[in-house]
Amino acid sequence: MDADPDDTQYALRAGAGDRHAFSWLVKRHQGGVHRYLTRMTGIPETARELAQDTFVRAFQALPSWRPEARFRTWLFRIAHNLALDHLRRAKRVTFEPLDEALETPDAAPGPEQRLESLQRVRQLEAALAELPAAHRDILLLREIEEMSYEDIARTLELNLGTVRSRLARARAALLAVLRHQ
């Protein structure tokens, strides 16, 4: 997948010192970065701090950023490294509940459907919390952040075959946990 031309243009301008261009990049990507970090750390306040750190590090490193690297992938790599460092320091791995929007797939479900949906989401959250961080990480990037296999490979610094096999193992592990529940 090619780089987003807007991201590339704004990243180049930001790397040259244009703070308005960097502000545009922050506004565009802050939601996804924060969502990812919240789910990785399980603590919204910590995720907010890590997201800020992500953008500070990105701003500092932008002069050395190369346009052949997708900006979003590069940014998520920074966030990923900060999340792993935090989890190692805290010696804990948790999972943040999925958005409430995922709890009700219907626009106007009845009480039984809402309860069933809520139970499925809670079951999924519990299953994800039991997975190792590497499995949870790759599932979040693919299924929640909807990254391509290629972008995940760049973000996690893995080859494409490893991404595919790790994602398959993560999905199998998730299914095994769900069956066990």
Results as ranks from 00 to 15, higher is better:
L156P: 11
P105S: 01
G31M: 01
R120N: 12
A51C: 12
A14L: 03
R39I: 00
G17F: 10
R164D: 13
T94L: 12
E150A: 14
A170R: 04
M147G: 01
T8H: 07
N159G: 06
R142D: 10
S64L: 05
L128V: 01
T38C: 15
R92I: 02
R19C: 07
T8W: 08
W65S: 08
E100N: 13
L98A: 08
Q52R: 13
G42L: 06
R171Y: 11
L102T: 02
D4F: 10
A133Y: 08
L175A: 13
L102S: 10
A3W: 03
R77M: 07
L87Q: 03
F71K: 03
A172H: 14
P111I: 02
A58I: 00
H34K: 06
A176L: 06
L118E: 13
R13H: 11
R70C: 09
R48M: 04
V163N: 07
H34T: 09
P67M: 00
A14M: 03
R28W: 08
E112Q: 08
S64R: 15
G32V: 00
R136L: 11
L175G: 14
F71L: 04
E45W: 08
L140N: 11
P111D: 14
L124N: 05
V33R: 05
E103K: 04
H180F: 15
N81A: 04
H34P: 09
N81C: 04
A134F: 14
D53W: 03
Q123Y: 07
R88S: 13
H180W: 15
A79G: 09
R92L: 08
P5N: 05
T46S: 13
P63H: 10
A108T: 06
S64H: 15
E68L: 02
A107V: 03
R179A: 14
I138N: 04
L118C: 12
A108L: 12
D151P: 10
L115E: 13
G31Y: 11
A79F: 09
H80C: 05
A101E: 14
T8P: 11
A58K: 03
R48D: 15
L174K: 07
V163I: 00
I138P: 11
L37V: 00
L50C: 09
E68H: 14
H29C: 02
P97F: 05
F95T: 03
N81L: 03
A134L: 09
F22N: 09
V93I: 05
H20L: 11
R35N: 13
E157Y: 08
A134V: 03
F59Q: 14
W74L: 02
M1H: 12
R169Y: 12
M1I: 00
V177R: 15
R28Q: 14
A51G: 13
L131Y: 09
L37D: 06
D99F: 01
E146A: 11
H180V: 02
L141S: 07
A176E: 14
L141A: 04
T162V: 00
I138V: 05
K91A: 15
H80N: 15
T54H: 04
R142H: 15
G42V: 02
T54I: 00
T54Y: 06
Y36P: 13
R164M: 10
A47T: 01
M1K: 06
